[in-house]
Design a protein around this nucleic acid. Structure first.
Length: 285
DNA sequence: TAGTATGTTGGCGC
DNA sequence: AGCGCCAACATACT
């Protein structure tokens, strides 16, 4: 379930499971007909230790003692899980095991996860990292303003990893609802105050997930269904938790958008140009 | 069976 | 050039 909070939890979990411990085994479980050169290179390098795990947005960098780095994106369904022993479950791509520890499996049902094996620890220069905007949990107010100063709907702008890194469909939807902003509004039409409200709503929702799932996420492979913890995401037709009106689902840029129309009204037409002008003017050269 | 799914990317058209 | 839209990627579930 990887957006920024889930990737951060994966990083924390990998650090506590593997970093600094003696690495006993690394195994490639990719089927031969889908062989992956980067996973093969990881195994062939025979690393003895995972030295550090870093995260930026939804990207992970696993630094090994050999000087190599595995860049890893979890895609839609990538996740790590403990396996005490026994048969390798379906959809495991590769596994690592520290001495006296369980196997740590990278599992990816839909196989949208992407790896890149780098010969240096300098992940920051790789395009997958260099092209990312500021991390959503670290971004300053000015970063949010500039990320949302371009054309296009605010919902779509939030999903652009080159503007702000780490926001996915869930947190974009939740943040816009909590801030009372219509996802269809032009990003550049938001006032500075609205941008600040949106930023704090997204950060608060992310921190909520981090604290709620700390120590709970990345459990064993078979887990029961978890209750949807979000206000509007995935709740089309259900009553809005604030006003009771039915949550509406629309499509933007091919992705589902959930909103409560009364709580997220369109921008009043008369105020539009004034707001856009005031913010643009304050950023002048 | 058809529709939908938390992400990214490349191609196409404006 | 830059931007938005959409299909594709692979698989599971309702």
């Amino acid at each position: 379930m990887p957006e920024l909070p889930e990737v951060e939890l994966a990083a924390v979990w990998l650090r506590s499971s593997l970093v600094g411990r003696s690495l006993e085994d690394v195994a490639d479980h990719t089927p031969p007909n889908r062989a992956n050169a980067d996973v093969a290179a990881l195994v062939a390098a025979r690393p003895r230790m995972l030295s550090a795990v870093r995260r930026h947005g939804k990207q992970l960098a696993l630094d090994f003692d050999t000087g190599h780095t595995l860049l890893l994106h979890l895609g839609m369904t990538g996740r790590f899980a403990h396996r005490p022993s026994g048969d390798v479950p379906a959809h495991v791509r590769f596994s690592m095991r520290a001495s006296k520890g369980p196997w740590v499996d990278f599992v990816d049902v839909r196989r949208f996860g992407r790896f890149t094996w780098l010969p240096t620890p300098d992940a920051a220069t790789h395009p997958a990292w260099a092209s990312l905007g500021p991390d959503a949990l670290e971004a300053a107010p000015a970063d949010w303003c500039s990320a949302l100063s371009r054309r296009g709907p605010v919902k779509t702008a939030l999903l652009d990893q080159a503007r702000l890194a780490g926001i996915g469909n869930i947190y974009a939807n939740e943040g816009l609802f909590l801030a009372g902003i219509d996802p269809r509004r032009q990003a550049a039409s938001l006032t500075t105050g609205e941008v600040e409200q949106l930023a704090s709503a997204i950060v608060a929702t992310m921190r909520g997930t981090l604290s709620r799932e700390a120590g709970v996420a990345m459990r064993y492979l078979s887990e029961g269904h978890v209750e949807n913890p979000f206000a509007v995401y995935g709740r089309a037709g259900e009553p809005c938790p604030r006003c009771g009106a039915p949550v509406q689902r629309i499509i933007q840029a091919g992705r589902s958008t959930f909103l409560c129309p009364p709580c997220q009204p369109p921008e009043p037409a008369a105020a539009g140009p004034q707001r856009a002008t005031s913010r643009t003017g304050s950023r002048g050269p």
